[in-house]
Every structure is written in structure tokens, then in C-alpha cells.
């Protein structure tokens, strides 16, 4: 009983591309009709047998698929029950690894089924698919590779071609250091944006003394400094306000990385506050790229977060976003 019978899941096939309308008749029919008129004596002949049992539903393709899915669900459920993997207690179900499905959308599915895919029909299909997906998760965790493969081959027919893009949406692209160890990151604040290149300061240790050459003393490292160039100007020339400058160096201070990197940045758009904020954001992302261990700390300090605050809109009936017009008696 524990073996997967070949008949559990019949080979799942796609619908043939021939058009099967309920009203469609073979072209030869009309020829026969012509013959009928030509021949004086009419003979009784049977109706052609419909290609699908769902022929008279007018949506044979859709209901065929639906039936097959239901069958697959029924069979795999039976199989899993046999394997004692169903019913699954709640705690076990909760601990299943996630298997995020992205089904074809309503329009794509409509083309596939050659039916007008209403929301109700689409929901019917996706409900079944989700069920199958759950079974696949159980099969995967429960150690039924055969069933898993078969379910996988069924489900992949319904999966969206844009699955990867949709799943990676909203996730940050990992920053890749180039051959010289430079990072390139983008920072934003208000309407400003900053392109930031960062490179670790490279200093050779002082190995002049004979003790250090012999390895008796550990080599001494000179204190290095960070140089920040903004639009080709030193930081102090580009930002005259101390508050702006401190905003730029804050991530370096939090990371304790003052003197570790040299920074080159190009900032565009907005004012000084926005530009310095954008630069700080870009530097924070750059530090994380160089030192991934700081990722959690920077996230908690909200340094790598893009500040979503923007200018509040003006409202009708008000002078500005919040300012009210003066009250006038007449």
C-alpha cells in the first residue's frame, strides 16, 4: 500500500488547442446536409459523441481541468492518509516550511482555459491549486519525493512566468563590491538622492623596527582618516552647517568606522538637509555592504531605512498644509 500506484495521478495533460464550443460542429456536417438534400431517401444517423463529458457545460476545457485537479487532490489526499501524513496536527502544519506560490493571473488563466475567467471561476481554481500546494509542502516535508515531483509538475503549469520577479519585489538588491573593493550605493531623503562610492582606507603597517621584522612586536598601524568628497568638494566646503555634516558622519560614528573608509559621493536634488540625509543614508548602506554583520544593528538604528516623510500636501480651504486663513468678520 505504501507504494505510489501509477494510477494515483493520471498523466496530466494540457488541453488540446482544438476549439470545442458546444455549438461547434464539424465542417463535414454541412457537407452531409448538402448530401441530404441531394439524396431523396434520408437515413437515420447518430449524433457524434462529444469529446468531453463536460461538452454540454459550454466550458468543457475549464471543467475538464477542474475535474482533473479535484481528482489529483483526492488521490494525493488518499495517498498522504495512507502515509499517515494526514490529518496533520495544527502545530505540525504551522511548522511546515513555506512554499510561496504565485499563480497565473486572471487574464493569463483565461487564455489558458479559453474561457472568460470570472472572479468566481478563478477563485475556484486557485483554491484547488492552493490545496495542492499544501499537499506538496506536506509531501516535501514528509519524505514523499515521488508525490512531490508529480504535484510539482502539475502546479508548474499554473505558475506565473513572472514568479521570480514578483517574489523578489520589495526586497533589496545585494550590494556587490567591485574588483577594487569599492561599494556603490544609493541614498535618498526627501527629494534628494546621493550616489555613494566607498573604499576601505588601505595602509601598510609600519614594519621598520627590527623587533617587528622579527615578529617579536606586533606591527603598529598608523591612525587613518576618512576623507569625504561631495560633488568633488570636501565635506566642510559643501555643507557649511555643522548639523548637516554631523548627519553625514553619523553612520560612521555608529559603526565605529571613522577613518576606515574613504567616501566619494555625488548628490543631486533638494536642499542641504535632504542632501546630507541622502548622503548619510547612502553611507549607511555602504557600510553594511562592506560589513554585513552590522546589518541588524543598522536596521534597528533605522540608518538603512529610507525616510518616507515627504512634503505634506496643501489642502483646499487652507493657506498651506496646516495653516488656516485669518478669520475675517466680513
Amino acid at each position: 500500500m505504501n507504494t505510489l500506484r501509477p494510477s494515483v495521478l493520471q498523466p496530466f495533460r494540457r488541453i488540446s488547442s482544438a476549439r470545442t464550443y458546444a455549438c461547434a460542429r464539424p465542417f463535414s456536417l454541412s457537407v452531409r446536409q448538402q448530401d441530404d438534400f441531394a439524396r431523396p431517401e434520408r437515413t437515420e444517423y447518430s449524433k457524434p459523441i462529444p469529446s468531453s463529458p463536460n461538452f454540454y457545460t459550454t466550458r468543457a476545457a475549464f471543467y475538464d481541468q477542474l475535474t482533473q485537479l479535484e481528482k489529483a487532490i483526492g488521490r494525493s489526499e488518499a495517498y498522504l492518509r495512507n502515509q499517515h501524513l494526514l490529518p496533520l496536527p495544527d502545530f505540525a502544519r504551522a511548522s511546515l516550511p513555506p512554499l510561496q506560490p504565485v499563480w497565473k493571473d486572471q487574464i493569463e488563466m483565461g487564455l489558458e482555459f479559453r474561457t472568460k475567467m470570472t472572479t468566481t471561476r478563478y477563485r475556484k481554481i486557485t483554491k484547488l491549486l492552493n490545496q495542492l500546494n499544501d499537499f506538496q509542502r506536506i509531501a516535501k516535508t514528509g519524505g514523499c519525493p515521488e508525490l512531490e515531483d508529480k504535484l510539482g509538475s502539475i502546479l508548474e503549469l499554473y505558475e506565473s512566468s513572472k514568479k521570480e520577479a514578483l517574489l523578489s519585489r520589495g526586497k533589496r538588491k545585494p550590494v556587490v563590491l567591485d574588483e577594487y573593493g569599492r561599494s556603490y550605493t544609493l541614498g535618498k531623503r526627501k527629494t534628494s538622492s546621493a550616489r555613494v562610492w566607498m573604499i576601505p582606507v588601505q595602509v601598510a603597517p609600519k614594519n621598520d623596527t627590527p623587533e617587528s621584522l622579527l615578529g617579536v612586536l606586533s606591527p603598529t598601524y598608523p591612525v587613518t582618516t576618512t576623507t569625504i568628497l561631495v560633488n568633488n568638494l570636501p565635506l566642510n566646503q559643501f555643507f557649511p552647517l555643522p548639523a548637516d555634516r554631523e548627519r553625514v558622519t553619523r553612520p560612521l560614528k555608529v559603526a565605529g568606522a571613522l577613518g576606515k573608509y574613504n567616501v566619494y559621493a555625488i548628490v543631486r536634488g533638494g536642499g542641504t538637509t535632504g542632501q546630507s540625509g541622502a548622503l548619510g543614508h547612502g553611507i549607511a548602506k555602504g557600510i553594511v555592504a562592506h560589513d554585513p554583520e552590522l546589518e541588524a544593528m543598522f536596521r534597528r538604528a533605522k540608518l538603512t531605512r529610507r525616510d518616507p516623510r515627504m512634503v505634506e500636501r496643501k489642502k483646499t480651504g487652507l493657506a498651506k498644509a496646516r495653516k488656516r486663513y485669518a478669520w475675517v468678520k466680513r
Binding site: 576618512t226 566642510n236 555634516r245 558622519t249 560614528k253
Partner: peptide, 25 residues
């Protein structure tokens, strides 16, 4: 940290280091 921060912020400029760094922070 204060020293390195102010030195970085002032870009090594003496007046900025004192007046906009140490005295303004």
C-alpha cells in the same frame, strides 16, 4: 570618536574644526 568625527566633518580645516566642530557640536 569626537575627535575623529570633528576632524572628518571639518575636512581638516582648522577654523571649521574648532568653530563649527568643537564649539558648535
Amino acid at each position: 570618536e569626537a575627535f575623529m568625527g570633528k576632524y572628518t566633518e571639518s575636512g581638516g580645516n582648522a577654523r571649521d574644526f574648532v568653530w563649527k566642530g568643537l564649539l558648535a557640536t
